[in-house]
Structure formats: C-alpha cells, structure tokens
Design a protein around this nucleic acid. Structure first.
Ligand code: MN
Ligand code: MN
Ligand code: MN
Ligand code: MN
Lengths: 221, 221
DNA sequence: TAAAATTTTTAGATTTATCTAAATTTATAA
DNA sequence: TTATAAATTTAGATAAATCTAAAAATTTTA
C-alpha cells in the first residue's frame, strides 16, 4: 500500500497535470504540497521507483497509468466523503474539505463501494466536481466563466478569477458565493449585463462581474 | 495533536489497565502493539514527557487524567464508527473492527458529535461495548459467564474462556458465535443445562458449555 | 550567445518510530 | 540468600519524510 504522503503527492500531480497539459514541475508540486523543492525531488525518486510516475531529472513528471488510477481512487474517496458529510451529517459545503482530506486515506475498497451505495451513487461532490465511479470513469467537469454560460443550463459557482477584496465583498452581498446554483435567464443587449436565477431569486450582474465568476456546468443531475 | 501511534499506545494501555488493576507492564504493551519491548520503552518516555502517562523505570505505567481522556476519546470514535458501518453501511459485526481502527484516528471533534447525532446517540457498539458520551462517561460493560446470567435479561456473546478447537467448533454448529444476542429462558434442574433463546430459536446447552461462554449483559437497550 | 536568473538536484542533518543485541534491574527458586 | 530466569532498558542502527545550504542544470535576457 501507499503512505498518506505518497497518495497526497499523486493527487497533487494529477490535479496539476489536468490544469495545463505537459509535464508537472517540481516547484509546482512543492507549492501544492506546502513543502520544499528538495523534499519533492526525494519523493519523485521514490514514486518513480514504484512505477507511479515517469520522471526525467530536470524535465518534470507525468503519472503512469498505475499512478493515475491510484490518484483517481483517492479523489473518488475524497468526494464521496464530502457528499456524506454534507448530505448525511449536515455540514456546510465549505466545512468538509479538510475532513475529507483525512478520510480519503482510509484504506478499505469495500467501504468505498458501500459508502457510494449508501449515498445513492452521486455523480458530483458538494462543489460540483465529478465523482469517479468504481472503474475510475467520470464526466469531466466543464468550468467556464459565468458570461459564457449557455441559457437554460444550470451551474454551480466554483470560484472566481478576481481575488480582490472589493470583488469578493460585492459577491458576498449578492449572495453569489461558492457552491451556489445558478441559471442564466438572459443577457441585456444595452450593457451586456447578465440576468440570472439564484434559487428562486432573479438577479442582474454586470458583465465585468460575470467575467470573473467561474461556474461548473452541470452536465447531468 | 497526537500521532496515530501515540493514540494506539494510549488505547492499549487503557484496555490493559481495565483488565487488571495496577500498573501496566512493558511486555504487555509490546504484545498488544505487536512490537518489541525496546520500542515500547522508547514510546513510554515520549508519552511521559507529554504528561500522558506516569512512568517509573522498571515499574510500569498508569495513564494520567489527560492520557485517560485521550484514550477514551479514541475509543468513543472507534465504537461510533463501528455502529455507522453496521447500522448504515450494512457491514457484519465481524467486519468492522479493522476499518474502525483506521477511522478512530480522524481528527475532527465536530465530526464525532455530528456522527453521534446521526446515529441516534447509541449507547453500545455492535459488540455490546459501551460508547463513551462526549464527556467521556459511559456505563461499564458487565461481562459474566452465560450460566450466571439472570433470566429475562438479554446479552451479547463477547467471547469464550475455553479456546480449544472442539469447543469452538461445537459453538459454531450451535450458532453461538460472538455478537449473537441471547436470552436465558430457564435452567434444567436435572443436569444444570441452560435453555436459551437465540433470536427466535430455542436452544439447550450443557452446563459445561455455558460455563465457557462470556456474555456482555445489556443494561439498557 | 554569454551572463544572469530560475529551477532543480545533491549533500548532509533532523525527527519519528522502528529494530537487534547487549547490559541492567527485578523477580523467582533452589 | 545466592544463582537463575525473566523483564526492562540502553546502545547503536535503519527507514521514511522532511529540512537548509550548496552545487548543477536549464531557461531567460540582454
Ligand atoms: Mn475537497
Ligand atoms: Mn489528504
Ligand atoms: Mn472494535
Ligand atoms: Mn488504531
């Protein structure tokens, strides 16, 4: 089996390799793991020995099939536990990540399958991210800016591309916070502002605001 | 916070100190932890430094109040997770211990309280052992031999005091295995054999058999 | 393309939890 | 009450994951 640390490295490498294609750099991993580049190099040698990554000195790494499957299994557990915490234990969406970060390392394949069943085989976690099935397959999440959303489809706010305080405070006031489900109902010709439905409430936000809200399009329910 | 290893040591020391009163010996801990006496000595120094145990060289150890409270918190989590696995995820009673051994180390006080609530504040785990409440209080379990059980009360088989193969095979045939709930319905005057109800089934076992079955008396439901 | 800046790796330590083998202390028994 | 046995501790190593500082490789810039 793999240590917690190894699993966390594989997960970070997986996420980084999704972000931009190509190899993943040592410094990016160090940043994601909150550790130093030298420590990462040590671990990369170990993961390469175990055939979990392909590693060429100074050239960065890619996950092997085995490494990728391992990373996806951990991500599956993480997201299932998040669903459990929100759906069954009544946690808020913003409280569950750190606990899931621990629960994801519990090592019992049968537990994962039973949990999945208990939760009704959810397709998405509370943040709108897809949950891989037992074979590791999942519908990729489609993250776009709010102003590019097609009308009629619903989406979940998953982040912002402007992290300034004034912007975040504005969003807070509007109620447009991470996890909120929205639907575009129209675009105003005059100023490009976006009309949307938040729960049952009708809202109008400026084009500038819409351009900085990241939305996770819901492919299916 | 305490490492998994430290928590496991505290738990073993707690259980050993319940078994027989007085101090707990190095070798007993080594045996319980599946490790060597030399390793235990190292850890005892560390736990003493942290004020979790009182330790006198060559004289064995006792838990401090702080150490005892920590051990009971771990035991509370262990038993709550076992209830979750059996009640919600449909595991059998004999499948849950090893998974709970991992889950007990998840560190989130609020998670424990939410889980307890979700499960309906159970008083006993699937093996009949008491679950400490959030303050660490619990009704001690009362383990007696089957032939000493008062009539009318129900109990759960928690062990045997004869570990020989012929005896265990005999019990297996009768269905009298660990975790099974039973109730004494009468004692036969003629040979001292015991009549009991197992689920809905009526059984008669010899006095010799009854003397070697350990039962956990259910104080409350 | 050569110098400067950045990234990555190596070298050498540290911390935690182990181990084996040897020394020490305590308990048991002749 | 000494000798023997058992339990416990110390000494010295090892493996995993980390660190800092220095060296090496790569990329960028002028
Ligand atoms: Mn998460
Ligand atoms: Mn994690
Ligand atoms: Mn258990
Ligand atoms: Mn444990």
């Amino acid at each position: 089996m793999h240590s917690f640390t190894e699993e966390n490295y594989l997960k970070i490498i997986y996420h980084l390799s999704q972000a931009d294609t190509g190899t993943v750099q040592t410094n990016a991993i160090a940043n994601g793991m909150n550790t130093k580049a030298a420590s990462v190099t040590d671990m990369l040698k170990k993961l390469a020995d175990k055939q979990l990554i392909d590693y060429i000195k100074y050239q960065g790494v890619t996950l092997t099939e085995k490494g990728k499957a391992t990373a996806i299994k951990v991500i599956r557990k993480h997201r299932l536990w998040e669903v459990f915490l929100v759906d069954k234990l009544k946690f808020r969406w913003d409280e569950v990540h750190d606990i899931a970060e621990e629960l994801e390392h519990i090592n019992s394949p049968i537990l994962v399958e039973r949990l999945d069943d208990f939760l009704g085989f959810p397709k998405r976690d509370p943040h709108g991210d897809p949950i891989p099935d037992r074979d590791g397959n999942f519908e990729p999440s489609v993250n776009i800016h709010l102003h590019e959303m097609p009308q009629g489809k619903t989406g979940i706010i998953i982040g912002v591309s402007d992290h300034s305080s004034p912007f975040l405070i504005h969003l807070q006031k509007l109620g447009l916070t991470i996890g909120v489900e929205i639907e575009i109902t129209g675009i105003t010709d005059y100023d490009g502002s976006v009309e949307l439905l938040m729960n049952t409430k009708q809202l109008n936000v400026s084009k500038k605001v819409a351009q900085h809200i990241l939305v996770n399009l819901q492919e299916t329910i």
